[in-house]
Design a protein around this nucleic acid. Structure first.
Length: 739
RNA sequence: GGGCGGUUAGCUCAGCUGGUCAGAGCGCCUCGUUUACACCGAGGAUGUCGGGGGUUCGAAUCCCUCACCGCCCACCA
């Protein structure tokens, strides 16, 4: 502590600096002072923003309400805070808009568990009470994750904190949807969609994850039906299928038009077993002659290819499933069974009949629900879709024209490929928690879309009063409101001052894993609705993995808990470790050793500062270190360190400017530790302690020490804000210096 | 089936548009209580930069090819 003396009887410090820097103990206090200084808001009382400079704006990827802060959030926050702090130090009006996402499906999963403990279910509560319960749950949890960001030293503008379910966002959703509807891009139609029987909702293509599976390819014989309707016992057609249970929904068999084996079969009819349905054999070139038997059973209600092929040939679409994944009443003897059970029984029955020709192991890809892992069932449903093609064109143009660029650039190709082959977006979800679709229907089947909170006053088709209209029960895909985020958080659709000043935003910083889910949607919706690209740079970071390269997960028990790390060694160490390990677009591994190294670095810096401040030669004013001495006073060592310092500043600035944050910290680590501490500090000790040396010499040495330290502390501040702040506060400086 | 990324010291990784790039951290070995720091210092060992070919005065860095590893996308049932 200040004022204590060490064993040599020398005042341990002329500075009030404790020997050991205890980050976890000092960080919260420093953060509080930043908050009190009101510097996070560019309009705040403590803001030193120079409004003649272009604003620097980041919209935080809103973490899910339901989640606890994990290391991925910490990386996101560390990078964004680094960028924002740099911009702020350069006096740009720097705005970082924080937010929280309502996470529709994820929130349902969590709340369902909570109410289960209370002995309730979604169904038992009913929609209204369930949503009331959800809002109560939100009130409890909504700010938790935001507040956890305080610990990281995040300087987002908390005054502008937003929630994807707040009124502003709700209005943006309504207005956006109405615009898309009026523009003819949003439509309701019956299409084959991805159905999750576990979540009991439709899913977008992105929410279905392809899962390579060792399945079985069953070869099944279908019997031909004679013209008189009787079954031909001798003539059969063998089809190959991986899903025998869908036989119940078959409405045809397809062969390749030029397949000589089946020329005779085309136009004839076969009998679908169990449901005793007579269906045609059609010819279509989608059929691969070499695969299986060369004949494919057609189940238009449960297979995308079959659906399209069936449509070309006028085949019936027979949905044989229920919402929870069982065989429905159209499944004849198998009605009521689960998909899996029905499959087993059908295979057994086919075998018994002698119609199972073969069953061979088969590598296949199974679509599973991203959330629940249930096998996704293609089904025919009436849903809301958005024709995203015209929007995709605009988003593509923004990147082609360089109005938005990706870091690293290679992701532009991924972005192009996806947008160039994009399909319509199924945006309606059969859930309760989320933005309800602002569409109303009348008894005559007219649809009225309204952006008014109260809904339409009358039917747009027939003028029926609102009292006779019924609102759509369904809600939007969570990503619809997220897609509006960069502008809805700034006040869109209103023409607000924030929107005018801060939109388009500057950098969208997020993980490469949500380019399609989020980045592409923001680009499309932003271009279409605001006429501008929502951000000029997309910076993509990688995943944080465990020391062995495995994905971190609670079940594996290999997670690095950011809050735990902060409690142990401080936020600076966590931030430095993450930033130092990051390369744009690349994954990194994080473990104990990297964190310790980062902690040691902070400590090293602290101790160097402690030495420098305590080594001021007698007779030298404390603020003498503000300016460099006359060149004549400099020795070779001073020339060397100043040269090194200048080069490091230039290199670090270049790296920071190119979003090479890891490179910047590596340069600073090297310069501070290996050059400044190991060499210059040691050489300076000799000069400073040399009683014979002229006082000017000693003063010059000390001033160089302070000057260089000040430069390095500033350069490092965006990454390690706490120690650098603690040190800088003790360095001589004037009020005009950036904080 | 397409596409992308990786393969550099024992481990984890930097090395952007070819010539102080053969590096860092951690680990390892030897020494060290000298006015910051043992969360430290001084010194040291370890690599034909995945294989092969090419371009060049010169390549870890550019081109071709092969081999593994990883990821993303994809309507062969």
């Amino acid at each position: 502590m200040a004022g204590t003396a060490d064993s040599a009887g020398r005042a341990s410090t002329a500075t009030d600096m404790p020997t050991a820097y205890r980050a976890p103990e000092v960080e919260p206090g420093i953060y509080r002072r930043w908050l009190e200084a009101d510097v996070f808001d560019p309009d705040g009382a403590g803001s030193r923003a120079d409004w003649s400079k272009p604003p620097f704006v980041i919209t935080q990827p809103p973490p899910n309400v339901t989640g606890a802060l994990h290391v991925g959030h910490a990386l996101t926050a560390a990078i964004e805070d680094t960028l924002i702090r740099r911009a702020r130090m350069q006096r740009h009006p720097a705005l970082w808009v924080p937010g929280v996402d309502h996470a529709s499906i994820a929130a349902h999963v969590v709340l369902d568990k909570v109410i289960a403990e209370e002995g309730e279910t979604r169904q038992s509560l009913g929609r209204e009470r369930y949503l009331e319960r959800m809002w109560r749950f939100m009130d409890e949890t909504r700010n938790v994750i935001a507040e956890q960001h305080y610990r990281l030293g995040v300087t987002a503008d908390w005054r502008r904190l937003r929630f994807t379910m707040d009124e502003g966002s709700a209005r943006a959703v309504r207005v956006a949807f109405k615009r898309l509807y009026d523009d003819g891009l949003a439509y309701r139609g019956e299409r084959l969609i991805n159905w999750c029987p576990g979540c009991r909702t439709s899913l977008s293509d992105l929410e279905v994850v392809a899962n390579p599976t060792e399945g079985t390819l069953w070869h099944v014989r279908y019997h031909f039906v004679r013209d008189d309707g009787s079954i031909d016992p001798d003539q059969t057609l063998t089809v190959a299928t991986t899903r025998p249970e869908t036989i119940l929904g078959d409405s045809g068999v397809a062969v390749h038009p030029e397949d000589d084996r089946y020329r005779e079969a085309i136009g004839r009819r076969v009998m679908i077993p169990f449901v005793e349905r007579v269906v045609p054999v059609i010819a279509d070139s989608v059929v691969e002659r070499e695969f299986g038997s060369g004949a494919v059973k057609m189940t238009p209600a449960h297979d995308q290819t079959d659906f399209e092929t069936g449509r070309r040939h006028g085949l019936a679409v027979i949905d044989v499933m229920t919402d929870d994944g069982r065989i429905n009443e159209l499944g004849g003897p198998y009605a009521g069974l689960s998909r899996e059970e029905a499959r087993q029984r059908i295979v057994a029955a086919l075998e018994e009949r002698g119609d199972l020709v073969a069953a061979m192991p088969h590598e296949m890809v199974l679509g599973r629900c991203q959330r629940s892992d249930d096998v996704v069932e293609p089904r025919l449903k009436t849903q809301w879709f958005i024709n995203v093609k015209p929007m995709a064109e605009k988003a593509l143009a923004a990147v082609r024209e360089g109005r938005t660029r990706f870091v690293p650039q290679r992701f532009e190709k991924v972005f192009f490929d996806w947008l160039e082959n994009i399909h319509d977006w199924n945006v309606s979800r059969q859930l309760w928690w989320g933005h309800r679709i602002p569409a109303w229907y009348c008894i005559d089947g007219h649809t009225t879309v309204s952006d008014e909170e109260a809904g339409p006053s009358a039917c747009a088709g027939c003028g029926r009063p609102a009292s006779e209209l019924v609102q759509d029960e369904e809600i939007f895909d969570t990503w619809f409101s997220s897609g509006l985020w960069p502008f809805s958080t700034l006040g869109w659709p209103d023409d607000t001052e924030d929107l005018r000043r801060f939109y388009p935003t500057t950098v969208m910083e997020t993980g490469y894993d949500i380019i399609f889910f989020w980045v592409a949607r923001m680009m499309m919706l932003g271009e279409w609705l605001t006429g501008r690209e929502p951000f000029s740079v997309v910076y993509l970071h990688g995943m944080v993995r465990d020391p062995y390269g495995a994905k971190m997960s609670k079940t594996l028990g290999n997670v690095v808990d950011p809050l735990g790390v902060i409690r142990d060694i401080g936020a600076d160490a966590l931030r430095f470790a993450l930033i130092n390990g990051t390369t744009p677009g690349a994954d990194q591994r994080l473990g104990e050793s990297r964190l310790e190294g980062a902690r040691n670095f902070g400590n090293k810096l602290w101790n160097a500062a402690r030495f420098v401040l305590g080594a001021r030669p007698p007779g030298i004013a404390a603020d003498a270190g503000l300016a460099l001495p006359e060149p004549a006073q400099l020795g070779p060592a001073e020339h060397w360190i100043l040269d090194r310092c200048a080069r490091t500043i230039a290199a670090a600035e270049t790296a920071y400017g190119a979003f090479q944050l890891g490179e910047a910290t590596r340069l600073l680590h090297e310069a501070i530790w290996s050059e400044y501490c190991d060499w210059y500090l040691e050489l300076a000790k000799a000069t400073l302690s040399d009683e014979q040396a002229p006082i000017e010499r000693r003063a010059a040495t000390w001033r160089v020490l302070v000057w260089v330290l000040d430069r390095y502390v500033r350069l490092l501040h965006p990454v390690m804000p706490f120690v650098t702040e603690a040190i800088w506060q003790r360095l001589p400086h004037t009020d005009s210096d950036p904080d």
